Simulated assay, not measured.
Amino acid sequence: MNNTAAVSRPGRAGDSEKITINLGYVDLGQIDLLVAESFYGNRTDFIRTAIRNQLAVHADALRQVVARKMLVLGLQHFSAADLEAARSAGQRLQIRVLGLATIDPEVTPELALATIESIHVLGSLQASSAVKAALAARIH
């Protein structure tokens, strides 16, 4: 019996990140029982609800940490034009995101290296494999 459950938010591709968790057989059985009794539509619905409930319990702490660490909450996208503007202004970016940070596929590794000083993402970073490789030492 496989005791792995996958969780992803509904929506368009790129709107969610798939994760895999391992659960004990008893926990998984209890979830399956709640699903069978129509408390939840499926395992994913149960797990998503449990995660949201825990995030709600810790909402105040999360808000304080986001403010203290000066994180952008949600989605932050960097286009080639954004990075060219930063390079023209002599700026080096410190990217700090809680959510999703995306770097446009048109951004070259050279442009990324010239303009991005550091990247700290709690969530997901989407960029070309070449850009990720070039910035590997700057990604925390």
Rank of each mutant, 00 (worst) to 15 (best):
A130F: 07
G11K: 07
S124L: 13
R9L: 07
T102L: 08
V107S: 03
S124V: 14
V26H: 09
G74V: 01
M1P: 10
Q76F: 03
A86G: 06
T44Y: 01
Q54K: 00
S16N: 09
A101Q: 07
Y40S: 15
D82R: 07
G99N: 08
Q91P: 10
I31N: 01
S79D: 02
S79T: 05
K69D: 06
A127I: 06
H58P: 09
I139D: 04
T115R: 13
T20H: 06
A137H: 08
A67R: 09
I47Q: 05
L73W: 09
V107I: 09
V26Y: 04
D104Q: 14
R87A: 02
Q30K: 08
D60R: 00
T20P: 06
E110I: 03
R9K: 07
L23A: 07
R96M: 12
R87I: 06
H120R: 14
N42L: 05
T108H: 09
L55Q: 01
Q30L: 03
I21F: 05
A5Y: 13
A101P: 05
A5E: 12
V121S: 12
L93T: 10
R52D: 11
V107M: 03
S88K: 12
S129I: 09
L100C: 03
V121R: 15
D32M: 07
A81L: 01
I47D: 00
N3C: 14
A6P: 07
S124D: 13
T49E: 01
G74L: 02
A136M: 01
L111M: 08
N22M: 02
A86K: 03
T44P: 09
E17C: 10
A80V: 02
K69W: 03
N3S: 15
A50I: 08
D45Y: 13
S88P: 08
L55P: 00
Q64W: 00
K132R: 00
R63H: 02
I95P: 08
N2S: 14
S79N: 00
V7M: 14
G14H: 08
L98S: 10
A101V: 03
S128R: 00
F39N: 15
V57I: 03
P10F: 13
K18C: 10
L111K: 00
S118E: 13
V72Q: 02
H140G: 14
S88H: 06
L33P: 09
L28A: 07
I51M: 09
D82H: 04
A112R: 00
T4V: 14
Y25Q: 13
L135R: 07
A81Q: 09
T44H: 04
A5L: 14
T108A: 14
A112N: 04
L62I: 00
G99Y: 01
A137E: 11
A85T: 15
V131G: 10
M70N: 10
A133L: 06
I116L: 12
Q30I: 04
H58K: 07
A61H: 11
Q91C: 12
I51L: 07
E117V: 13
L93D: 12
D45E: 11
A67T: 04
L122W: 10
